[in-house]
């Protein structure tokens, strides 16, 4: 661990990698809370995959890949909504249809783009190759995401918890939904280098779910989720650097370990304490019965 710290002091590429992955951990954690509470985990998976053709087309046109990614990301969420509202096809099926089509299209377009971009690094990330420009983009995206969540926290909370009530006093639920979809696409793009398209969904869902098991307050859940995301990024980066493993995969496995700990030991929701409470309760009933006999 000491070596790792001195390496961070010595190597700029490692500093960039660390900063970027912490930022990604935080914003994925924050947006992830809203994604899981809205029951949109699959949608998060879909949008992260669907940015692929957008990135390819951006390279062909020579523009920043952010624009293409946001465009195809939004197109996916609109397309999914359109199919499930205008046919009997259920929501999860239309998510499956739309995102796999976009992903397939992306694979072909990336190959056709014949540029320096490498499909593997988009799919799985390569955090040690983060450039300064990527780092700045992550910082800007992170700032935008955090600002929107802080400014509209109230509105996000109420439209997530009770959308009918929100609509009854005039909140534009549909607009809020698409703003969240834009943020989700931005977060995906920011995460490309760190964990890659395929594993972004884990960064969105796992830390948020861990936090969900530990608290009854949304504000606390968001802070915890961001902390778990950042912590996983640091530990994951350490292991991937020391043992030469894929950074995205290691970071995701760290989030999984945190989740499993919460799943078993969370004070109220954890299966361990639950079984303890049930046993206590049962024994309590037996002792009370014994006492009443005596």
């Amino acid at each position: 661990m000491m070596d790792f710290i001195s390496d961070i002091q010595n190597y700029v590429f490692l500093q960039k990698a660390l900063f970027t992955s912490i930022m990604v951990g935080i914003i994925c954690g924050v947006i992830g809370c809203f994604i899981i509470l809205r029951g949109m985990a699959l949608m998060g998976d879909a949008i992260s995959h669907a940015v692929l053709p957008g990135i390819a087309v951006s390279y062909m046109l020579g523009i920043n890949y952010l624009y293409g990614a946001v465009f195809t990301g939004l197109l996916t969420s609109v397309g999914i909504g359109f199919i499930s509202q205008n046919s009997r096809v259920k929501n999860d099926s239309s998510i499956g249809i739309v995102f796999s089509s976009f992903f397939a299209l992306g694979i072909i377009l990336i190959a056709k783009a014949k540029s320096t971009i490498d499909l593997t690094s988009i799919l799985f990330g390569n955090v040690l190759s983060v450039r300064s420009s990527d780092m700045w983009m992550t910082l800007i995206i992170g700032t935008i995401v955090l600002l929107v969540v802080i400014l509209f926290y109230k509105e996000l909370l109420v439209s997530t918890f009770d959308p009918t009530f929100a609509a009854s006093y005039g909140l534009p639920n549909r607009l809020i939904h698409y703003v969240l979809m834009i943020l989700l696409t931005l977060v995906t793009v920011a995460s490309l280098q760190t964990v890659g398209v395929i594993l972004v969904v884990a960064m969105l869902i796992t830390p948020a779910s861990t936090a969900y098991l530990l608290t009854n307050r949304l504000s606390v859940m968001i802070v915890l989720s961001a902390a778990f995301g950042a912590f996983s990024a640091i530990i994951g980066l350490y292991f991937s650097f020391e043992h030469n493993l894929s950074s995205g995969a290691v970071i995701v496995l760290v989030t999984t370990v945190l989740f499993l700990i919460a799943f078993v030991f969370a004070p109220k929701q954890g299966i361990y304490w639950r079984s303890v409470r049930i046993r206590k309760n049962r024994n309590g009933v037996i002792t009370r019965k014994k006492e009443s006999f005596e």
Partner: peptide, 18 residues
């Protein structure tokens, strides 16, 4: 001026809110 109380079934009772 208008207040609305939705059906109980429409609410996510696991939501992290007090």
């Amino acid at each position: 001026k208008v207040a609305y109380v939705p059906q109980r079934a429409a609410i996510d009772w696991d939501f992290p809110i007090t």
